[in-house]
């Protein structure tokens, strides 16, 4: 576990003590492997992650299937210690390895008219017992506005604690957008589409009243079924105290500029 470089993450904070490997890899939401928190750790070993490629298409200059090793050969993998805030009001700190999403989009060459980026998770019913149930409209899909996608905090992560990404955490490659609720950080990405329309986002489509397209971490806008003002950091045991949730999950200085002039209670 001593593989995290001392390089500071882009965002600072005195609460950035990473959760343990065990915590990060045993408590997951990955509904394709079951809706229980321990289901992904129990079932995700069935997912084959090699070979892997990402289809990048839509409004790009160089559409195509990009093999993962070819992508990685061109990228600088760096450490990013980020807060991770689930919409369910729990949180962790995770020492990711990855590269900026902007660099991946550069590979494909984003065209001028592109305004959004759509992402898709792999869908393999034979390897994913959870997709037998229509909990969501599979495959899992998410989206970002182009300026969000190009923000340097948004990364494609390929590892945790210096080890390859565990399957339950979204192997072999996943998005991490630290200022948004965790479900925006789509796992096991197989497709990225540049588009001029707001893309389909699974939870938003399932219940737009509860899950906004933006889903920025915001302690002032409650989920209809629970408060988002506080969160429980995983690892504190049975008597763990709640802590205050930070605006944009503590990345306000870096990302607030993206949302200037927007009503965040309306565009939540």
């Amino acid at each position: 576990a001593g593989l995290v470089a001392a390089r500071p993450a882009l965002a600072s904070g005195d609460d950035l003590k990473p959760n343990s490997w065990d915590e990060i890899t045993s408590y997951n939401n990955y509904y394709e492997f079951g809706t229980g928190k321990s289901d992904p750790a129990a079932n995700a070993h069935r997912l084959t992650t090699s070979p892997w490629s990402i289809r990048i298409d839509g409004m790009v200059d160089r559409p195509g299937d990009y093999a993962l090793p070819d992508i990685l050969a061109k990228m600088d993998i760096e450490d990013r210690i980020y807060r991770f805030r689930c919409v369910e009001a729990w949180s962790m700190v995770i020492p990711w390895q990855g590269f900026e999403l902007a660099d991946l989009l550069d590979l494909a060459g984003v065209q001028d008219g592109a305004r959004y980026v759509a992402f898709e998770t792999v869908l393999r019913p034979k390897e994913m017992p959870g997709v037998r149930y229509p909990v969501l409209d599979w495959p899992y899909r998410e989206g970002l506005r182009i300026d969000e996608a190009l923000h340097p905090l948004a990364i494609m992560a390929t590892g945790i604690y210096g080890k390859p990404m565990p399957n339950q955490n979204g192997a072999p490659i996943r998005l991490v957008v630290p200022w948004k609720y965790g479900f925006k950080s789509i796992k096991s990405v197989v497709r990225i589409t540049l588009t001029d329309k707001e893309p389909f986002a699974s939870w938003n489509k399932y219940n737009p009243r509860e899950y906004g397209f933006y889903s920025n971490v915001n302690p002032n806008v409650d989920h209809p079924r629970w408060s988002q003002a506080t969160e429980r950091r995983i690892g504190g045991g049975l008597f763990s105290a709640r802590q205050s949730t930070l605006m944009f999950n503590g990345y306000e200085d870096e990302v607030a500029v993206l949302y200037e002039g927007m009503d965040l209670a309306k565009d939540f």
Partner: peptide, 17 residues
């Protein structure tokens, strides 16, 4: 309750309990 105290309910024992 005992399981929650001793790790048997996983890393988030409050919700689990």
């Amino acid at each position: 309750f005992y399981q929650g105290l001793t790790g048997g309910l996983g890393v988030e024992p409050i919700s689990a309990l």
